[in-house]
Nucleic acid binder design. Structure first.
Lengths: 139, 139
DNA sequence: TTGTTATAATAATCATTCTTATTATAATAC
DNA sequence: GTATTATAATAAGAATGATTATTATAACAA
């Protein structure tokens, strides 16, 4: 049996390829889907928060958002007189793409769990969460 | 509960950070550990095979191997009169680093599974393998 | 044997990602 | 109120990774 770190790398990689191959069809590059995944339910977040969820550095997020802004998927606004943080919103076009991307994520998850019982899915999710805790002490 | 694709991304990310933070201490960059993980038991493989295991494109592997060669970790040789394939071997220094990296991988896995029973570990490994199959039809 | 097809690796280009440093702003301390 | 400290984002530079095209070699077919 393969090692745990290898199986994590491989299953992530296979999942990413699946998601990216679909995302490409709607004009997205590889860094963009995860950001839309977060914005789907958290529009108006600041960049630091989004980066934390996406497990990337704020500087990295900034460069991806720049392209998304240029392509008209998102816009950055300031609010409450705070001139240090930027808050990210979807444009109308961005909302449409975001909906499509949400379906792609759902379908990928469905395909991944074919033939696995809902109890086992719960089990694996709990264990993955525990592994995350073990390795970095936070969630 | 988070979605499956998110938990896979997150646990992979957390594991990678752990591994990379240790790998950095012995002078490795982020792309190198997984290659040493394979060479540990498969010295003398050709580049296409290594790339397949590492879940990266052969062209990407080539650029990482170039730096590893320049740093004296590996060397590429030809064999059996085959002038199309290159076969990858560890140098003496590469072998030492490879041993250290192997320990780092083992320790990361140990830390990840703290407080999880061996039965559950088997379960999660089987399920991750199944998810890989479901998503791309091969192992 | 010669021409076609398939395969292994590299080259070039772009997006992503990290790290370190810098800039701008906010919050706090004195 | 001014100075220090902390925070949010960007800039610059390097490594990783994918994609497409090219080169070199091997295998096969006529």
């Amino acid at each position: 049996m393969e090692s745990l770190h290898y199986l994590l790398m491989k299953s992530h990689s296979v999942m990413q390829r699946k998601i990216y191959s679909e995302a490409q069809k709607i004009g997205l590059t590889s860094g963009q889907p995860k950001i839309l995944d977060y914005l789907y339910e958290h529009e108006g977040s600041d960049q630091k928060t989004i980066a934390g969820y996406c497990e990337i550095e704020p500087a990295t997020l900034g460069s991806i958002l720049l392209r998304m802004e240029q392509k008209g998927l998102i816009e950055r606004r300031q609010k409450n007189g705070n001139r240090r943080s930027w808050f990210v919103y979807l444009t109308e076009n961005g909302k449409e793409i975001c909906e499509k991307m949400h379906d792609i994520f759902s379908q990928a998850d469905e395909q991944a769990i074919e033939g696995i019982s809902s109890g086992e899915i719960e089990e694996i999710k709990n264990l993955l969460t525990k592994i995350c805790h073990n390795l970095d002490g936070k969630d």
